[in-house]
């Protein structure tokens, strides 16, 4: 009965042949994006801090890093890592890292991590800079250590500003992950191409489109819930300005679901 209904919109024969593979593809895409987004977040935070540090060399390095990874296409970076670094087998064997560069999966993870780190670094930098100086000074006046000030005062406030752009970056990563299919990974796009190359049925591309839209929509909803939770302490103050300037505008817009 359900099958009959399903048969009205999609080709059941195709579904039997490729349905499970598509689900596998969704799982691979989800893993690829989740892992590289989290690792990229850690690296990105470090780079963002380096960008704001007083050490000239650190500032310069993180600036160059961010410029390189934001200024060139992820596709070129992926090929550079996979085929470029992958061609130096002797070297990697000597340093004991060949097991890593041998696998397309690790190469893709590394490329995506390095790439998203550059974008997340800029997001974190913006968030940290948006925290008013007075907050830091007040915390210092209370006798807090620098590390504690950052962890307890600056970072939570920076995250509120960073949350929305981070959500956008996560969605961009989901979309960008489709190019992993070009280096033999069977993510959602890879599975789609494989199935298409054997059946030549264009419908498969539409399945992929719908699945990607579902993933993106899920992330958007999840993020809205997350934002509401993380900013619930600001809700009381919504009628009057919490803080002057654009920070309060940002947080207010963050409070609106699906804004």
């Amino acid at each position: 009965m359900l099958r009959d209904l399903l048969g009205l919109v999609i080709n059941l024969d195709l579904l039997d042949r490729y349905g499970w593979r598509f689900l596998d593809g969704v799982v691979v895409t989800a893993q690829l994006v989740t892992i590289s987004f989290i690792l990229g977040g850690v690296l990105g935070l470090l780079l963002g801090l380096a960008r704001l540090s007083e050490n000239l060399a650190l500032r310069w390095f993180s600036g160059a890093y961010i410029y390189f990874f934001r200024g060139s296409p992820l596709l070129a970076q992926l090929f550079l890592l996979y085929y470029g670094l992958g061609s130096l087998r002797g070297f990697w064997t000597d340093v004991g890292l060949w097991w890593f560069f041998r696998e397309a999966w690790y190469c893709a993870l590394l490329a995506f991590t390095l790439n998203t780190a550059a974008y997340q670094a800029e997001i974190f930098r913006g968030g940290i800079q948006a925290v008013p100086r007075g907050q830091r000074e007040a915390a210092a006046a209370l006798g807090m250590h620098n590390a504690i000030i950052f962890a307890k005062v600056v970072f939570p406030q920076a995250m509120i500003v960073a949350l929305r752009p981070l959500g956008n970056e996560l969605i961009l990563m989901v979309k960008a992950s489709a190019i992993a299919s070009l280096v033999t990974i069977y993510d959602l796009m890879g599975v789609t191409k494989l199935a298409f190359s054997r059946s030549y049925n264009f419908e498969l591309y539409l399945w992929a489109a719908v699945l990607y839209l579902i993933i993106v929509e899920c992330i958007r909803r999840l993020w809205a819930v997350l934002e509401r939770r993380l900013t619930r302490h600001l809700k009381m103050g919504e009628s009057q300005p919490v803080q002057a300037g654009w920070l309060s505008r940002m947080t207010k817009s963050a409070l609106k679901p699906n804004a």
Binding site: G71, L80, Y83, L88
Partner: peptide
């Protein structure tokens, strides 16, 4: 990008050409 892939296929120098491609895009961005 395609030109770079072709060059890599012909010369077997992926490092050189993919780096060059990255820098071409960087120049365009700058």
């Amino acid at each position: 990008m395609r030109q770079t892939n072709l060059a890599v296929g012909a010369t077997k120098q992926p490092m050189v050409f993919y780096l060059t491609a990255c820098f071409l895009y960087l120049i365009l961005s700058a």
